[in-house]
Amino acid sequence: MPAIGVRHRLLRDRRVWIGLGVLAFMAVAALTAPLIAPYKPDAQLDIVQLAGQAPSSAHWLGTDPFGRDVLSRMLFGSRVSLTIALAAVAMAMTFGTLVGVIAGYFGGPVDSVLMRLVDAAFSIPPLLYIIVVAALWGDVGIVALTLLIASVAWFGVSRLVRAKALTVRDADFVMAARALGMSSWRIVTRHVLPNVVGPAIVTSTLAIGNVILLEAGLSYLGIGVRPPQASWGSIIQDGAERMSDQWWLTLFPGLAILVTAFACNALGDALRDALDPRQLQPLRDDDTPLITA
């Protein structure tokens, strides 16, 4: 695939700039949270006077029922939300690509077994599965939650990567390499991986958006971060009881989640279109939401 064409298409696509812009903004906000946050995120400033105050000049996004500054919590919360999403997707991608390449390249019984496993995994309703595990197994912290999310995010990638690896395996240049006595390891790293990396990246970008949504939903259900830490979903949860009169606790974190997920999805769409211009439509598998949020 001509790299120049891809780059050109990407640079021309406004979705890329919007997506990257939003994500860069979020990343900077998350990284510099300790510097720019007006208050400590978990400091209960005044549990009587400042509990549940509407947005004001002192607290731009209001305060929560514990007298904490919502803006500061959202800034620090973005670290948690984004870290979970990135880490979970990174893990899922690595594992999914590994399984996909192995299945696709080696084929035969290995492929059958792995793909049946993927089929089975696909049939687990992810949200329900995580709710059940988290609720029954108790104290699910950030690390465990990340692992849980990763555990339901990998199979979409592996199916896609396998399909790609399957086509690459039978390509002329791979045949030639094999005929020249190149080891399987080298063929995989030299020829197969570079060819599956594109779809994998597209999928991961779309997956990040979905994982952010999933994490928010789970935090809203009280699964994941533990007080006094915040994630976007947990801020909504802290305010859920007071939704009707303290709307800022639901609205602002919700918008943050929406905008971030939107940026990831826009970027993902743009990447997909750029990498595969012949196909103006989404690839069947990579548009399949990896995670249901």
């Binding site: 978990d42 400091a43 209960q44 029922p65 514990f66 009280g222 007080p227 006094p228 009881e241």
Partner: peptide, 15 residues
Amino acid sequence: SSSSARHKYAVLLQD
């Protein structure tokens, strides 16, 4: 986790 009041108190006590 079923008790809202006790959850709130726990968060307040923590701080």
